[in-house]
Simulated scan of single mutants.
Amino acid sequence: MSGLQRALYPARIWQDDDVYYVQFLDLDNGFTFGENLNHAKEMAADVLSALLASAHNEPIKLPQKAQGSDIYLIAAN
Rank of each mutant, 00 (worst) to 15 (best):
I74C: 01
V47Q: 06
D28R: 13
L48E: 00
G68D: 05
H56I: 15
V47N: 01
L62W: 05
P63V: 03
A75W: 05
F24Y: 00
A40M: 06
D46W: 04
A44H: 02
D28T: 11
Y20K: 04
F33P: 02
N38A: 14
G3W: 14
Q5E: 15
A76G: 08
Q23G: 06
D26W: 07
A75Y: 09
E58M: 10
D18I: 00
V19I: 12
W14S: 09
P59Q: 01
K61L: 06
D46V: 02
L27N: 08
G68L: 06
P59V: 04
G3S: 10
A40L: 08
I60T: 14
A75R: 14
G3M: 08
A76N: 13
I74S: 02
E35G: 10
K61Q: 10
Q15K: 11
N36S: 12
Y20N: 01
M1S: 10
D26R: 10
K41W: 02
V22G: 03
N29H: 13
A45H: 01
N57W: 09
Y9E: 03
F24M: 04
V47L: 09
F24V: 01
L8F: 15
P59D: 05
T32N: 07
A53L: 15
F31N: 07
S2A: 13
Q5D: 15
S2C: 09
N29L: 13
S69M: 07
Q15G: 00
N29W: 02
L25N: 10
A11P: 06
Y72W: 07
L27F: 10
P63D: 03
V47A: 05
Q67V: 05
F24N: 01
A55M: 12
D70I: 00
F33N: 04
R12N: 09
F33Y: 12
W14E: 12
N29K: 07
A50W: 09
L4I: 11
